[in-house]
Design a protein around this nucleic acid. Sequence first.
DNA 1: TTGTAGGCGTTATCAC
DNA 2: GTGATAACGCCTACAA
Lengths: 342, 342
Amino acid sequence: MSCRGGRVNIGEIAKRAGVSRSTVSYALSGKRAVSAATRRRILQVIDDVGYRPNASARALAEGRTRAIGLVIPPAGRRLTPIQLGFVADVVAAAGRRELDVLLSPSGGEHDRSFERMVRGRRVDGVILMEVRLRDARAARLRESGVPFVAIGHTADAATGYWVDLDYQGLVASCVRHLADLGHREIALINRPRELLDSGYGPARRALDGFEAAAAARSLSATASCCPDEAAAGETFIEDLLAARPGVTGLVTINEAALPGIERALRRLGRAVPRHISVTGVVGRHWAEEFHPPLTAADVPITDMAERAVELLAERLAEPGTPPRNVLLAPPISLRSSTAPPP
Amino acid sequence: MSCRGGRVNIGEIAKRAGVSRSTVSYALSGKRAVSAATRRRILQVIDDVGYRPNASARALAEGRTRAIGLVIPPAGRRLTPIQLGFVADVVAAAGRRELDVLLSPSGGEHDRSFERMVRGRRVDGVILMEVRLRDARAARLRESGVPFVAIGHTADAATGYWVDLDYQGLVASCVRHLADLGHREIALINRPRELLDSGYGPARRALDGFEAAAAARSLSATASCCPDEAAAGETFIEDLLAARPGVTGLVTINEAALPGIERALRRLGRAVPRHISVTGVVGRHWAEEFHPPLTAADVPITDMAERAVELLAERLAEPGTPPRNVLLAPPISLRSSTAPPP
DNA sequence: TTGTAGGCGTTATCAC
DNA sequence: GTGATAACGCCTACAA
């Protein structure tokens, strides 16, 4: 294809190929038969001048943009590596389906871009990250009639499209794993309190799963929240072990606190897994960086991104179909951070 | 504004307000005087039905999309937290200017989305992350005539718009800082070798700055590359100190290796900064998470994002102006990881 | 197999 | 101050 990316439009191609504009259009879309000869000629010209249909014009005519929106938490709140990897994976998955991705931070009061996307029909559908049990953005999308897939589910789970991780089941599995090893006193290191209080699903359900499983096995269990930071993880462990020195098993869904947890345990002379076992649900990368590598359920972000895009694409293709959703429960990868208590 | 986000277009608003479509348009854009009364009436209707101009139609008519593209490194290569924070910051900065952001991974062979963006006129301009000294994507944009701002500069620095960090100067400052403290034997921990070899500017210029400054102060200096991973940082330190036990000063621009560096130093019994000093150029977060907090130049991602969007917006507004660029040199934040050598 | 023509929703140029 | 009306570039009946 040549250099001049100038102002070539379909009419120009038609003229050069000696056909009508519709023929060019059909040669490209394949929605009507075009003789092999003309098609070849047209494609040749297109390749020569480096033509590509104008996306805006196409969107206007077709009534769809071939783009999806990805609503991310606002920039202020630092994104966790998991969330950020997810963004990249969504873009990749969408790209495979010839969909472009428009990013919109939201949740703060900069919902301007959110509104632009939604009302301005800039996108055909939306993937909504980090959904709360009751979520204003989800409500907004619903009332605007914009198809969307939520990452995490809302309170009315049955009525929408979503992809989520089975935090409840996974955390319960972790608890049972510890119980099976003989642990009697365990603790949950949850995400920050604000998240839990605002009805953030994973935090909520992790807590539920933890408490239920601990009760079922009659373990002595404490659950508390911890800010998403290494430093916070450090003081968390100090405080925890000061208050409850008998704890021998830790379950965490707070990956960002992990480095601090590791540091504190080492400093306090608690070897993992000899003195204390650690497990939970965290990004694979974090599990592997922990010392010793963490026995944990790895958050399958690439899967989640792929499924979310798939669901959305499906929903766009077949608007009528009943809601579908996906609850992922990745296996717990056995590494070396758990063992029987001392 | 009301709920029905349906198919309202400007004609519908015009009808309800009892005016022509153009009047509605002008009431919104302000490009023509509209009497206070009609304007009020129109805005009232718009607010009632929740109308927003269709972005595609507007783009087609105006000849610009009010969207910019952000070209990120492909998903495969894990994005560093700095890069990821940058994405969020760009989106925020663009949002402030009523610009939407389209994401496109590139560099791998998924250049389809890149081409879609560029040739399909989906965006008015592009921000190109992580530019190489000689960069195919930059060349492509240039020949397509798409305005862009590069993060990092290409070999022909003078001819383009870019925003970059003065790695050369910053690393040199770090070296001089160590020299001033009395260090005589230092080492540079650079980004991965592939990046250096492929002409990745920061790696290249960090090396240059390091060698020049070390030579100027007649320090004994080694520079090597290290993969972007904690584990790699760990073995890096082991190898380095085995080979050159006399090293007392470390300069790094590899933030991802930092946790490993910290672990290795601790395990080898080298206290920071008593036995060994550490400094460099890394994301603020990483500097603060290091123990003890790192004396280092903090990569000013928010600034860089803001300036990049600003430059691009300017370039879009005034196509004729000569290239502008910004070389940021943030101060080195004094924390507590450097001291005179033992 | 191919061409003609109308429409998608805006903005912008004329008139009045 | 305001209203018609022609682009913008593409898609897609409807004809031929």
